[in-house]
Simulated scan of single mutants.
Amino acid sequence: MLAAFGFEAMGVVVGDMYFIDPSPNEGQETPERGVRLELRLVDRAAPQGSIYAGIPIAFSRPVWRVDLFGSTESPPGTLDRAHHHPRFNGWEPGRRHFVPELSADPLSWLAGELADPAAVLARAGVDANEVSEADKTGLAAAAPEIIAAVKRLLDGVRDGELAPAPAEPVAAARTGWL
């Protein structure tokens, strides 16, 4: 499942994920599943045709990522691998940052981050002129809706409805939109 929240120059995308071999980090070799949220820049083009034509919209380059993941060997709903990537290098995320508050109370931690988009963007190295004040205000105002979407997806993963394992054994896999 994918949920998207768009503003003028940035947006948030949220989706369920499953990884067979998620990380080269020692102690994290087993599969993991959960919910990923990314703050991305948004590109919007002119209508392709008449004034009534659809408008191409792209949630392009990610600038910040939150992975609310748990090992498949842990009880469902356990977020023992929850982390975030405060910065990207192009399309590649930086290292995983584990924050105790993120695992303990992920929705409250995430709400706090979304309430201060300027700080998130500054840590991500995004030029202050790249995103308008209206975008930052809009993101902060939409935080409760975004948190609600994340909660719905987390509930779906916990209940086994989302982030399914591949149907057949594979050596490496990643399922989900993000």
Rank of each mutant, 00 (worst) to 15 (best):
L2V: 07
L2A: 03
A3C: 10
A3V: 00
A4W: 04
A4C: 13
A4V: 11
A9F: 11
M10N: 01
G11D: 06
V14K: 01
D16C: 00
D16A: 09
D16P: 01
M17G: 02
Y18H: 07
F19Y: 06
D21N: 15
P22A: 09
S23H: 12
N25R: 14
E26K: 14
G27M: 07
R33S: 12
R33K: 14
L41C: 04
A45L: 14
Q48C: 12
Q48F: 06
G49P: 06
G49C: 03
S50G: 15
I51Y: 12
G54E: 14
I55H: 01
I57L: 11
A58D: 07
S60H: 13
P62C: 00
V63C: 09
R65Q: 13
V66L: 12
D67T: 06
E73D: 11
E73N: 14
P75V: 12
P75A: 11
L79F: 02
L79K: 10
R81H: 15
A82L: 08
A82G: 06
H85F: 11
P86N: 08
F88R: 05
N89K: 04
G90L: 00
W91S: 10
P93D: 06
P93T: 01
E101H: 08
S103V: 09
A104V: 10
D105F: 03
S108I: 06
W109N: 05
L114I: 04
A119Q: 04
A119L: 12
L121M: 07
A122Y: 04
R123S: 15
A124Y: 00
D127T: 08
N129I: 06
E130F: 08
S132M: 03
E133M: 03
D135G: 10
T137A: 15
L139D: 00
P144Y: 10
E145L: 10
I147S: 06
A149H: 05
V150L: 06
R152K: 15
L153Y: 11
L154S: 05
G156V: 13
A163C: 15
P166I: 11
P169M: 06
A171N: 09
A172N: 14
R174A: 10
R174C: 08
T175H: 03
W177V: 14
